[in-house]
Design a binder for these strands. Sequence first.
DNA 1: GCTTTATGCAATATATATTTGTCATAAAGT
DNA 2: ACTTTATGACAAATATATATTGCATAAAGC
Lengths: 64, 64
Amino acid sequence: MKNIRMKVARTEMDLSQEELAKQVGVSRQTIGLIELGKYNPSLNLCIAICKTLSKTLDDLFWED
Amino acid sequence: MKNIRMKVARTEMDLSQEELAKQVGVSRQTIGLIELGKYNPSLNLCIAICKTLSKTLDDLFWED
DNA sequence: GCTTTATGCAATATATATTTGTCATAAAGT
DNA sequence: ACTTTATGACAAATATATATTGCATAAAGC
């Protein structure tokens, strides 16, 4: 399912998908697909995204 | 690096690597390698492990 | 001593995450 | 109107997570 929390956190930091991708070291498509919920990203990537967005794993990726 | 928190959580539940693997739906080797820190597991797998061990992502996979 | 049980290691095979490139579109700026 | 910027979609190629099998070892039970 869509990861709205991640998209919100990204826009709060005023970053485009492409800018976040560059900072995290992946392609724009990867970021886009994660936000669309069509991907099962690796733990290391999740952690890199969290650190860039000043969030934790539970903040962005933990449900219920 | 080694994931000691995961190993502790598993032993607290009195589960072997093989038992946890079966409950989570992966092979024993995958669990072993995650605990040894030689793997970059997928988010879905991390979540499945957390739920089986009654922990959250931050509990088992978030550092600092 | 022998047999389980639990764990680590290594090699090959398969599934899937991620990249790269390209196109389409809508919104914003000039 | 034109040009950027941001995003979604798609297909093919590459990298890597995960499965499978088999072997080695140490600890525990009998």
